[in-house]
Computed example of a mutant assay.
Amino acid sequence: MQTTRLDLARIRAARRVIDPLFLDSPLYRCEALEPDLGCAVSIKLETANPVRSFKGRGTELVASLLADQGSRAAVCASAGNLGQALAWSGRGRGLDITVVASRFATVAKLDRIRALGAGLELVDGDHEMARERAAAIARYEGIRLLEDSLDIETCEGAATIGLELVDTPPSFDTVLIALGGGALATGVGHVVKALAPEVEVICVQPLGAPALTHSWRQRRVVTTESTDTIADGVAGRYPIPAVLDDLLLVADDAVLVREASIMAGMRMLLEHAGLVVEPSAALGIAAILEDRDRYAGRHVVTIVCGSNVDMDAYHRWAGAAPSRAAGSWPS
């Protein structure tokens, strides 16, 4: 029987290393969403922490390991959330952190990385170019390169979310997980399939950044030349083979959603849940909007994975009143 790279014993042990600020995030049924979605919906809220995303769970493991080893520094490429999380975790352990990002990344995320004391280097390309530059810095300076989703700590840190899901009643039928590099999906998916195998694990990615979904469907790495989505946190072009191998074992399905659905999901989370979220965090709601019949009568959990968003852009995306006649809420 094939197994993933993840290990339940290590995931349980991770809870003793991760700062409690990132653990036991709120999980609650949001009945106000249900009339428009046609199913029971629970929210796992991963934004109520110092970096406003789930990424701190993984960077806490990495920073703790580096500190124990006597390391002095680390570098990562980030669209913004991983960089903030590594800066926060590294600062608390005396590590020098460098983050490489696209200069087109969300300004609010870049500002927060600087505020947390990390060095920030900007590149003129996209996230894949930032990954190349971060690797070059690591080689030149002889420091740890943190590669999100490839480094198992990022996956097993995220997997602690899965422990909290399966340990909290009531039971649910489906979990919808944003799919970017794959740490969140493979981490949560591994735990759910190990401890609650009857639960359907569905990964959600934007149509404008479909590389890992296409890879999952074709069971081989599929790359894309570009991305075109407001969901910058999941806009990768080069899936990691080891991550795909894990995803093939834990995901029941991978679906793509339109930009209009993502924006509608953001509006719904604001209007019915009082949550300001970044586009990646609305992917689960977008998936329900696009296929209500699939989820009818089910209890669905969606992981709201981040709330680091430029507010001017947010108002453009989510501020307009939805119009069913204009097709703003896909059916």
Rank of each mutant, 00 (worst) to 15 (best):
T4L: 10
D7F: 09
A9W: 04
R10I: 03
R15L: 14
R16I: 01
L21A: 15
D24S: 12
D24I: 00
P26V: 03
E31C: 12
A32Y: 12
L33W: 14
P35G: 14
P35N: 13
D36E: 15
L37M: 14
C39S: 08
C39N: 09
A40C: 14
V41T: 00
S42T: 06
K44V: 08
L45R: 05
A48S: 12
V51F: 04
F54C: 11
K55Y: 05
G56A: 00
G58A: 02
T59I: 04
L61Q: 01
V62N: 02
A67P: 04
D68P: 06
A73L: 15
V75M: 10
S78W: 05
W88K: 01
S89L: 07
G90F: 07
G92H: 07
G92L: 05
D96F: 09
V99R: 00
V100I: 12
S102E: 11
R103F: 10
R103N: 13
A105W: 03
A105F: 11
A105T: 04
K109A: 07
R114D: 00
E121L: 10
L122S: 10
V123N: 10
E128T: 15
E128L: 13
A130Y: 12
R131L: 11
R133S: 07
A135R: 11
I143P: 08
R144M: 08
I152H: 00
E156F: 01
G157Q: 01
A158V: 03
A158D: 15
I161K: 01
S171M: 07
S171V: 10
T174K: 02
V175T: 00
V175S: 05
L179A: 10
G180S: 08
G181Q: 08
A183N: 05
A185L: 07
T186I: 00
V188C: 01
H190Q: 09
H190P: 09
V191H: 00
A196W: 06
I202D: 01
V204A: 07
V204W: 02
A211L: 09
S215Q: 10
R217C: 11
Q218H: 15
Q218N: 15
R219H: 15
R219N: 14
R220I: 05
R220C: 04
S226P: 00
T229I: 11
A231P: 02
G233V: 03
G236H: 06
Y238F: 15
P241K: 02
A242I: 08
L244A: 05
L244M: 06
D253I: 09
A254I: 06
V255F: 11
V255E: 06
V257L: 01
A260Y: 03
A260I: 08
S261M: 02
I262T: 09
I262Q: 01
M263F: 12
A273S: 06
I285T: 10
A287E: 04
I288V: 12
D293R: 10
D293H: 04
A296W: 09
G297K: 11
H299Y: 03
H299L: 01
H299E: 02
T302L: 14
I303K: 01
M311I: 13
A313C: 15
R316C: 12
W317Q: 07
A318N: 03
A321Q: 15
P322E: 02
R324A: 13
R324H: 05
W329T: 14
P330C: 09
S331W: 03
S331C: 08
